[in-house]
Computed example of a mutant assay.
Amino acid sequence: MDRTEAGTSAFLRGHAQRTPERATPVISLRGAALAYGDRALWSGLDMEVRPGEFLAVLGPNGSGKTSLLRVILGRQQLTAGSVTVLGRVPRRGSRQIGYIPQQEALPAHSMPRVRDLVQLGIDGHRWGPSLTPRAIRRRVDEVLASVGATHLADIPVGRLSGGERQRVRVAQALATDPRILLCDEPLLSLDLRYQRTVIELVDRRRRGAGTAVVFVTHEINPVLGPLDRVLYLAPGGFLIGAPDEVMTTPTLSQLYGTRIDVVRVGGRIVVVGAPDADTVHSHADDPSAGGQP
């Protein structure tokens, strides 16, 4: 067993395996709508996410993918409808929600060390009991080991590669042992190797601890393995279902109101004709712009 596997085993020890499909939802939206002024992003959205489920959120820029995460985080109010997270109205700073934001450029001389960034995931929340300095340090070491980043602990964050930084962001998001993990375009600007690393870390967590994953992405192909369902947001509405139900020529053509071709090549999905189609086709190593709020 290598260091990563050993750390992960310790991190997940004591957790149940993936929760049965009919378990109580951890996220529930009913008749949810979101608009900015006269511009409606989506409406009538009914959706439940259950423990251990991996839901990918797809759609063109400006379709409200990041805004959906903000609603779940309690940072954005719905225009209509309702949302509950872990059985209650969402609020800022919940220790039961881990969040991986879109990558931001950092100067090479950025001073915070990796362990400092991860520590923010532990004591940077508004709610929850405080831990002793010794307990915090132990937790930081444990969570870094779980993602194979122990060797990065004392390196300034600004000196990390994009892939290393995302590995650390995963650690920060998992620091409070969350029941929900929200990922906002965590694969952007990463090569195929680091994309696989991030996906494997997220998938290992949800399988070992039953953590629900909501994964915003422009590129469906890297997540096809662990994926349970797709929520596709577009100007014509939304679709939610299994990948084979949503990612088809008829369904996406109906959603966009124009001909959209979905082709499967070598086990990969290629979408042709949709706005931003180049960000959801099979070129996973092409970095693209992130979704806008």
Rank of each mutant, 00 (worst) to 15 (best):
V118S: 04
V83R: 07
V114I: 00
L68Q: 07
E164Y: 04
D286A: 11
R259H: 13
R30H: 08
V83D: 03
E164W: 02
G31L: 06
T251L: 13
Q172F: 10
G59L: 05
S253F: 01
G237R: 03
D123S: 15
V168G: 00
V26Q: 05
R159K: 13
L233Q: 02
G273C: 04
M47V: 05
A212S: 01
M47F: 13
S282C: 07
H218M: 07
A108G: 14
A35S: 11
T217C: 01
V170T: 03
D203E: 12
R75T: 14
A33F: 03
Q102E: 02
P101E: 14
R139G: 07
T19V: 12
L120A: 10
T8I: 04
P20N: 01
T8K: 07
I122V: 12
R229E: 01
T279M: 09
R205I: 14
L55C: 10
I260T: 03
G31W: 07
I97C: 00
P129V: 06
S253R: 05
G148R: 02
G87I: 04
R30A: 10
G37S: 03
D123V: 15
A23R: 06
Q119L: 12
D116Q: 08
R3C: 13
G93Q: 03
Q17H: 07
D116Y: 00
P51Q: 01
V280K: 04
